[in-house]
Design a protein around this nucleic acid. Structure first.
Lengths: 272, 272
DNA sequence: TGAAAAATGTTGGAATATCCACATTGCTGA
DNA sequence: TCAGCAATGTGGATATTCCAACATTTTTCA
């Protein structure tokens, strides 16, 4: 299916399914809730068609269905991010909740972009702990912005849409001009050789965060154990603690304890 | 209200109005949408009571009302922005569409945060014009990120949740280190004395954008004509063009033509 | 204590949304 | 070209929500 809509603005061939879908997702970035009837009106299609669209999007996890309409998905802003968010969602949530318990009023933090750190940010916002956060992630800034308690400082740089975060030299330089108590980063892999990251540009950001923080926390779900990504972020010994959902396998465990890394295992969450 | 203060003093742990309300707001931090009936169930009160609660919270701008329930301003959409977004939505859309037509491949832009410039960004993303954009607005970065054609550079600074944008000295300094072909800014008011802005911190950003761009476009809906905000952003003569939804009243019109400002009136567009 | 005010509950009708079955349209490929 | 399939529209029965007016309970305060 080629991109067709724009060549014939005037004739306005009605948008196809895929076009409507992306338009709906985009509209949701503008407002948190849209009615079915409103969308039907906008696209000049029947409500049933819209209903089928949003049901499909809802099943794919890209938005939330509500009586009378749709609301934006809670767990991220992008397909990429969303797809990953859906995997191991419960694990990430537990890890995020556990990490948020560490934060005390007045702390200064750096938080890296990623799906696990995003969960961390959600709980941080929920707790309304007064703190100052430096981040390169847009979803994290938006989420924490809902907490009136947090002061948020955003990095500059090139915006990487697939990760909803900024990267690049400007980001690194800006981070380097700040110093915080604690930094929380995710990673693509955690192995005996250290933390590693696959996303281009992220490794440099993570390294800089580590270098300008007193203590260093890595939020890692068990699926990352033993994996190695493209770039190495740092050795195990650079970490203060890792927050994980399950015990690492023995070899990794040994390496972690040898490197004097504290291992915090997120408890099976009881709700509320 | 005074009655709220009263109940706060006495602090009885029974679920009162104020307690329910804060609980609703808390719940919304973890989920984007909650049904009225669900809340009524949770609090063991009638749906009408919940309805009164959320209506009042909605009027206070603390959440968004939806058919069947409430939704938070997930994704950086804030009461402020949302309320304004809904007013004159059609007008803003027309203005944004018209402005997007001005952009040519390879242009470098600065785009200010705001509800009208947000519409501009939507159409810019839709057109997939290859260009480079510097912005201080998170929603604009997110929206433009959908267009693979645009390169997006985000400002650093303090995150202002009510506007979903960054402001402050870092933002200004960063902007000042860039130069672009065109800048697009919104404003709180446009009068014979010039452009003005009410949001704290925005005026400085707008000024800086104007100072580092060859040409200057203001996107203004007719409701702003004759209004003046807290801080003056610039005189009329600093503007290259204004893009509006209707003809300004004669006195303003005269001032604009005297200042050699081009006036682009967005055509009544069909809906998409 | 007792009356006024506030908060909450109840009711019924209007509006809206959902769901389902089936008709229709419009692509696509043999 | 035409059959087949996917996408979309239609209509009606059902469920949910909304809204406004009024009844009831609870709280406040003189």
């Amino acid at each position: 299916m080629s991109l067709l809509a724009k060549s014939e603005e005037n004739a306005r061939p009605r948008l196809r399914k895929a076009d409507r879908r992306s338009q709906i997702l985009q509209d949701l970035k503008l407002r948190p809730h849209i009615r079915i009837s409103e969308l039907a009106d906008q696209f000049r299609v029947s409500t049933e068609t819209v209903r089928r669209d949003v049901d499909e999007l809802g099943r794919a996890g890209l938005l939330n269905r509500a009586h009378g309409g749709v609301s934006a998905s809670a767990h991220g802003h992008y397909p990429d991010l969303d797809a990953r968010s859906r995997e191991c969602f419960a694990e990430r949530e537990r890890i995020g909740r556990r990490a948020a318990m560490l934060i005390e009023a007045g702390d200064t933090l750096m938080i890296d972009g990623g799906s696990t750190t995003m969960q961390f940010a959600r709980f941080l916002a929920f707790n309304e702990t007064p703190c100052t956060v430096v981040t390169n992630s847009l979803p994290i800034a938006l989420t924490l912005g809902r907490s009136s308690a947090a002061e948020i400082i955003l990095c500059p740089g090139e915006y990487l849409a697939s990760e909803s975060a900024v990267v690049g030299a400007d980001a690194v330089e800006y981070l380097a001009s700040h110093n915080v108590d604690r930094c929380f980063i995710g990673a693509s892999g955690l192995s005996t050789t250290g933390l590693s990251e696959s996303v281009r540009g992220f490794a440099a950001v993570k390294k800089t965060m580590l270098a300008h923080s007193k203590t260093h926390y890595a939020l890692i779900d068990g699926g990352k154990f033993g994996k190695t990504g493209l770039s190495r972020v740092g050795e195990l010994s650079t970490l203060t603690s890792i927050i994980v959902d399950r015990t690492p396998e023995p070899t990794l465990m040994t390496a972690l304890t040898d490197a004097n890394v504290e291992i915090l295992i997120a408890p099976e969450g009881e709700h509320d």
